[in-house]
Write a protein that binds this DNA or RNA. Structure first.
Lengths: 198, 198
DNA sequence: CACCTGTGTTAATGATCACTAACATCGGCC
DNA sequence: GGCCGATGTTAGTGATCATTAACACAGGTG
């Protein structure tokens, strides 16, 4: 039978709770460094209960990365669609990514460390989503830096992601508002530098 | 008896060979994702042979991270000592870090992911070395940006490390020379931006 | 009330892992 | 030539792990 809305919601809540707990554990000790038993304990059950929600440990990771990648990709597309010009679009992409990285540091960390542990059908989908998100940035940046070729643009965006995603590792160094401002400044500067040293 | 130079060299070579192989394996699958047997196979022996060189898996990781941290810290100190001014010092720090990240992507990756798996006496030493390296950058940057407080400077340098260390993940996108130039540009821009949007 | 579905439990099970034991080989040195 | 230290080997060993089996129980629905 088809599951009704209430069931979907309840199911989703539990699932989400597990994914959230798993994210922080995976982020701090790595996928292979966390046991099913530990994951269960983190949500108040014992290990094997998780198999009611995911067919296996790898599927849990896959679901997590798929969700992150989708949120980033969809968010990016929406922000660009709404913006009135490339400079505004880039600024919005930056703000969105920074907000995400500060709100969900564990997810960001797992997202760019554990792709290799996702089994193959899903890995490909995640890669596609990540690539789509990157290309969204590249398209915007291409309008602002028409002198640069696509490979250079991709590398530029990649490095900027590295900058923005480093937040989890320096968490707590600065109050959130100042961290947002700093990352925005540094990200813009890194993306838009024309190569002439100041 | 004291080991003579030849023995030291041979010993060092084998040890180094193991550490190098371990670095690439740890970088791609994580500390817990690689078995002793695999580590051995990667250097042409079988698993337990490694216990002739390291007392355990964790000690192997500790030796690896200690070595990286030392090389970075010592290299940084030397570069700053030799430079004639802060701008030159910063440029030299950037070039040194970029060269390291491009030459040893696996080491850089393991270096900022696996500290948590190092047992306690060594973990503390590694942290101290990492901190020393960071402070070297902070001291230099403080001279160029006297308006900024130490917390802001630390966060700035941290984010820059994130930018520079992202290279392993975007390897092969650009020929090495252009990658160096790009990272140098982006790093300088990120470190020195004055916050006024261009 | 009977049943089904969602969710949990504890107790295997077989694989894998880090590490140890016992033994082999080989090169240099007295 | 015999010893010894460095470096291997294979065969355990006990722990831990992911996963499965068998069962329990609650809530809603027929």
């Amino acid at each position: 039978m088809a599951r009704n809305v209430t069931d979907h919601r309840r199911f989703g809540t539990r699932r989400t709770e597990i994914l959230r707990a798993a994210a922080t554990l995976f982020a701090s000790r790595g996928f292979h460094g966390v046991s099913i038993e530990e994951l269960g304990r983190a949500v108040g059950t014992s290990g094997p209960a998780l198999y009611r929600h995911f067919p296996g440990k790898e599927s849990l990771l896959a679901a997590m990365l798929l969700d992150v990648s989708e949120r980033l990709a969809i968010g990016g597309r929406e922000r660009v669609a709404v913006a009135t010009g490339p400079r505004e679009a880039l600024d919005s992409l930056l703000r969105g990514h920074i907000a995400f990285a500060l709100e969900e540091p564990a997810l960001i960390t797992v997202h760019d460390r554990e792709l290799g542990n996702v089994p193959e059908p899903e890995r490909h989908r995640i890669r596609r989503l990540q690539r789509g998100y990157l290309e969204e940035w590249v398209r915007v940046l291409a309008e602002l830096r028409p002198d640069r070729g696509p490979d250079l643009l991709r590398a530029t965006v990649h490095a900027t992601f590295g900058l923005l995603n480093s937040t989890p590792h320096s968490a707590g160094e600065l109050p959130e508002g100042r961290m947002v401002a700093l990352l925005l400044d540094m990200g813009s500067a890194a993306l838009l530098t024309d190569g002439r040293a100041p």
